[in-house]
Design a protein around this nucleic acid. Structure first.
Lengths: 96, 96
DNA sequence: GATCTTATACGGCATTGCCGTAGTCTGGTC
DNA sequence: GACCAGACTACGGCAATGCCGTATAAGATC
């Protein structure tokens, strides 16, 4: 079985436990999905190139795309802006 | 003496120690300064309003402005963009 | 003085940021 | 087929942050 498959099952079990009141949600966050990989691929950039262009750490980007870490609110907001106005972001950062 | 004054002195002593080779830098980062409070005040917003408008956590914003926490790379990049194109950012986030 | 707003200060813990590195896959070149 | 380089996945690991809450201070308005 793939790792993704295992993760899915784990998540499902956890969700069930929470629903049954047997477990508490680790945190309550709005489940807004920001698909970094999708945004990046739409821009036709490698992970390293994307990270460099938008001032991110390549390591952190990796963690996000691999589902190892959750983006915090700041990152989510930033990624949305990158998604909608990548060129503006790029220019703003170049003007540093 | 103000807290800011104390911080300054502490930082100076630490920098000296590092320069003398008596201490290691906690981390090597580019010392790019992003003054959140300045950006926010220029926009005429309270901490809460600023946080809400740009999708940040008010608690995190507080920590940054109080010098309690260091902004990570993502946050620094984002803040620069907010600094240079606040309206674009705002619109991009509204279009969620 | 009473009240409201805004900002500072800080305890606290789960979770992330970021570094490094090993392994896999694909496409190109010899 | 063997080999190399670029891109991605996977993950150990620790210092540091994210985010919550709350108590206190300073300024404005009544």
């Amino acid at each position: 079985m793939t790792k993704f498959g295992q993760d899915l099952i784990e998540s499902a079990n956890e969700a069930l436990a929470i629903a049954l009141g047997k477990a508490k949600p680790a945190r309550t966050i709005t489940v807004e999905t920001v698909d970094v990989a999708a945004i990046r691929k739409r821009l036709g950039l490698s992970q390293d190139a994307f990270a460099k262009k938008f001032g991110l750490s390549a390591a952190t980007l990796r963690d996000w795309e691999q589902g190892r870490r959750q983006m915090d609110r700041t990152a989510q907001a930033f990624l949305k802006v990158i998604d909608r106005a990548p060129e503006v972001v790029e220019k703003a950062l170049k003007a540093a």
